[in-house]
């Protein structure tokens, strides 16, 4: 163990905490919208307060799918045919800013707040 090793360890710890704080500033309140994005585009929005299950995909040529379940205010990916199953193993989310990501399927499932910033009101 040498001098710079300790410096690096401290750096890593600090970096991790800094990221955590930064992320926390975005994710504080309990969310109410579950936003499902495929390839960066929103494909579906669901209420966090209604227990439901929704399958993304299965209609394209590759038959990739992710099954999303909303229950008791938590969202999880319960099943998927992706290779690494990271999305399935990610713990359930419920706070604004948290997300579950399936990289091979380009899927992002995230929570958004009740009062999202509105760009305009049509009347």
């Amino acid at each position: 163990m040498k001098k710079w090793d300790y410096i690096i360890f401290v750096f890593i710890a600090v970096l991790s905490v800094a990221c955590f704080v930064f992320v926390q500033s975005y994710t504080s309140e309990r969310g109410s919208v579950v936003v499902i994005e495929l390839n960066g585009q929103i494909v579906k929005q669901l209420s966090l307060n209604e227990d439901t299950s929704y399958v993304v995909g299965l209609m394209n040529e590759t038959e990739d799918y992710n099954e999303i379940v909303i229950k008791d205010g938590y969202v999880r990916v319960i099943e998927s045919n992706c290779r690494d199953q990271i999305c399935v193993n990610t713990p359930a989310i419920s706070q604004v800013g948290q997300s579950i990501i399936c990289l091979p399927h380009r899927l992002v499932v995230r929570i958004d707040g009740y009062n999202q910033k509105i760009d305009g009101v049509s009347r």
Binding site: Q41, Q116, K117, D119, G120, V121, S122
Partner: peptide, 21 residues
């Protein structure tokens, strides 16, 4: 006057969010 036009790249995230009165 209540007619909303959103143009170009959404400013805040991936999409424009328009509310209906």
């Amino acid at each position: 006057g209540g007619n909303v036009l959103v143009y170009g790249k959404p400013v805040q995230s991936n999409n424009w969010t328009i509310a209906i009165r």
